[in-house]
Every structure is written in C-alpha cells, then in structure tokens.
Amino acid sequence: MGTGRLYAAVAVRAFRRYATYRVATAAGVFTNTVFGLILAYTYIALWDEKPHLGGYDQAQALTYVWLAQGLHAAVAAMGGGFEDELIERIRTGDIAIDLYRPADLQAWWLATDVGRAAFQLVGRGVVPMAFGALVFELALPADPATWLAFLVAVALGVAVSFAIRYIVAMMTFWFLDGAGVQQLATLVGIFFSGMLLPLNIFPGALGELGRVLPWSALIQAPADVLLGERTGSGLLSTYAFQAAWAVGLLAVGRLVQLAATRRVVVQGG
C-alpha cells in the first residue's frame, strides 16, 4: 500500500511538471494541427482514389488522422519523455542515485511516464481532435462506453510504449552513446505504430507484420477501438494483444535492467 502511494506521488509530480511546459505544449499542439491538416488532405486524395482502403470509409480515415495526431504524444510514438532523462542519467552516472534508493527503478519510471502521458493525452490531444472535428466530418462515437473502451486501450498502449522505451534506454549501459539505438527505435515506432498511415492499408506480409508487432498497440489498436472496429470479443482480443506485449516487454526490460545493474558501470566519481 505504502509503495502505491509513492508511485502515485511520482506520477502526479510528472503530470504537474509537464503541465508547466506551456510553450512546448502549445508548440506541439500547433505542429500536430498543421501536420494533421496536411495528412487529412493527403488521406482525402487517397480515399477518393480508393474508397474503403484498409476497410475504413473516408470519415473513419479522417478520424484516424486526427486521432493519431492527438494521441501520438501521449503514447510517445516518436520516443522521448522519460527515456531521454533516463538515458542522460545513465550517461552521466546519476543513475547511481536512483539505484541506491529503496524504490523499484522500472516502476518509478513507469509512474513518471504515466503522469506524463495523462497530461499529454489532455494537453496535446484535445485541441487537435476538436479542431479536426470542427473542420472535417469525423466518425466519432456517440456512445460513452466506446470512449471508455478507447481510454483503456490508450492506457495499455502507454504501457507497451513505456516498456519498449525502457529497454531502449537500458541499452545505454552497454552503448554509452545510445543515440543510434534510440534513432532506430524512433523510426520503427513512427512507422509501425500507425502514426502516419493506418497499418490496415498495407497489403500482404508488411501489413501482417505491422499488426503483430508491439508498436501497433500504441495508435492502431486504440484507433480501431474508437472507430468501432473492435467490439465484444474483438475488443477483448485487442486488449489481450496489448496486455501480452506490455507484460512481455516489461519482463524483458526487467531482465535487461538486472543484467545492466549486475555489470553496471556507473560513470564518474
């Protein structure tokens, strides 16, 4: 119980901290909105050419655009968030301080990331979504239960995203210059999360692959839930898919952390 309160406090602190980055939030919202517009018109051209591409009608496709723009910050589809901070701490050796605390390293950073995601879901999500809904005709659900189901999928997506970024950050223990690993992970994340294009529209093996990789839990899965493509057992299997990746990758992260701290070489005096 006591530990729960600690991690709750950590999450609240992260939420508040991101709330103070007003300029960054505004700039992010602006960028996402502009980018959303560009993507929206690209999608319109695409769907005019091929209606029902990937099983979506045009309204669903446009909803997807704005959803992805509103959601990608929260699920950190392009990396960043706690990851940069953790990498920096490993690089400078400040990680030593985190390690002698009686707190679990992974749980600590997960709490931080949950706080950040909660803020960015609201701070970075609402405006692009509202803008999109005003300017275009979107296929947003009226049923609050669908929105609730969507939020659950987002939460699971955040967990998967965290688990991936945690492993990436841990790599810094081996490659002190972790920039390469991080850039690769970011590229893969942008593509396979479905942030730019829904994974549904990719034919054949590439689409198959994209749909089973963990990144699809970040944007594709919550989007399908919001668009009403997943109900009943479909919804449950989407959750199961996300949860399985979350649990599996968190476990991998834990093992990597164990290996890292075993042979840990804490930098500096």
Binding site: A9, R13, G93, D94, A96, I97, Y100, R101, G268, G269
Partner: peptide, 30 residues
C-alpha cells in the same frame, strides 16, 4: 537502502525541478 544514507557531493539526490520540500515528501513516501 532503508538503513543507509548517502551523500555524493558531486551529485544530488534531490529533484532539480521541485521545491526542496517536495523532494523530502517523496523521501517520506519512498
């Protein structure tokens, strides 16, 4: 960890972006 205290003069256990008292509150929980 619960039985030892550490001060590394060249690093800080405090959180840069928080008021001092908030770091203590986190320690309280931790």
């Amino acid at each position: 960890a619960r039985r030892i205290g550490v001060v590394f003069g060249q690093r800080t256990t405090l959180w840069w972006d928080l008021p001092l008292i908030d770091s203590y509150r986190l320690m309280h929980r931790m």
